[in-house]
Lab assay of single mutants.
Amino acid sequence: TIDDAFRAIERAIQAENEGRYREALKHFLDGGEMIVTAAEKEASQKVRNLLLHKGKEVLEWAEHLAEWILE
């Protein structure tokens, strides 16, 4: 659900702030994927587009974090 997705993102932010970057990455990926999944089930085109945009933002952040971890 969207609530689960945002809880995962909150955990990711907390982990990132505490320097637990790999854990943060996992939570960002989980949250982003949950948002995209919820968007695919959404009946309203406007809400679907907003959710897809937010999911994409979260997944892009996860990608940047992963690249930073690997440096």
Rank of each mutant, 00 (worst) to 15 (best):
T1P: 07
I2P: 03
I2A: 04
D3R: 14
D4P: 03
D4M: 11
D4V: 06
D4K: 11
D4H: 10
A5F: 09
A5S: 01
F6R: 06
F6W: 09
R7A: 09
A8H: 11
A8D: 02
I9P: 00
I9Y: 02
E10G: 12
R11T: 04
R11D: 05
R11Y: 08
R11P: 00
A12Q: 00
A12T: 00
A12S: 01
I13P: 00
I13F: 08
Q14L: 09
Q14Y: 04
Q14T: 09
A15P: 02
E16D: 14
N17V: 12
N17A: 12
N17G: 08
E18D: 09
E18Q: 09
E18P: 01
G19H: 05
G19M: 04
G19W: 04
G19A: 03
R20T: 00
R20G: 02
Y21L: 06
Y21W: 12
Y21F: 09
Y21Q: 01
E23K: 02
E23V: 04
E23T: 04
A24M: 04
A24Y: 07
L25S: 01
L25G: 00
L25P: 00
K26L: 08
K26A: 09
K26I: 08
H27N: 06
H27C: 09
H27R: 03
F28G: 01
F28D: 00
F28A: 06
F28L: 13
L29D: 00
L29E: 02
L29G: 01
L29K: 11
D30Y: 14
D30V: 13
G31V: 12
G32R: 07
E33L: 14
E33K: 15
E33G: 08
M34Y: 07
M34P: 02
M34E: 02
I35C: 07
V36P: 01
T37Q: 14
T37W: 09
T37P: 01
A38K: 03
A38L: 15
A38H: 06
A38N: 02
A38W: 08
A39R: 02
A39K: 02
E40G: 12
E40F: 15
E40Y: 15
E40R: 11
E40T: 14
K41Y: 12
K41C: 10
E42C: 14
E42W: 13
A43S: 10
A43R: 11
S44H: 08
S44L: 10
Q45V: 10
K46A: 14
K46F: 13
K46N: 08
K46T: 12
V47W: 10
V47N: 05
V47L: 13
V47E: 04
R48N: 01
R48M: 06
N49W: 10
N49D: 10
N49L: 11
L50C: 14
L51V: 01
L51C: 08
L51T: 00
L52H: 03
H53N: 12
K54S: 04
G55T: 04
G55K: 04
G55Y: 15
K56R: 12
K56T: 04
E57S: 07
E57D: 08
E57G: 04
E57T: 09
E57F: 09
E57P: 01
V58F: 09
V58Q: 00
V58I: 13
L59H: 03
L59N: 03
L59C: 09
E60Y: 07
W61D: 00
W61K: 04
A62F: 10
A62S: 02
A62K: 00
A62T: 03
A62Y: 04
H64I: 10
H64L: 10
L65W: 04
A66F: 07
E67I: 11
E67A: 13
E67T: 09
W68H: 05
I69S: 01
I69F: 07
L70W: 11
E71I: 09
E71N: 11
E71M: 13
E71T: 12
E71F: 08
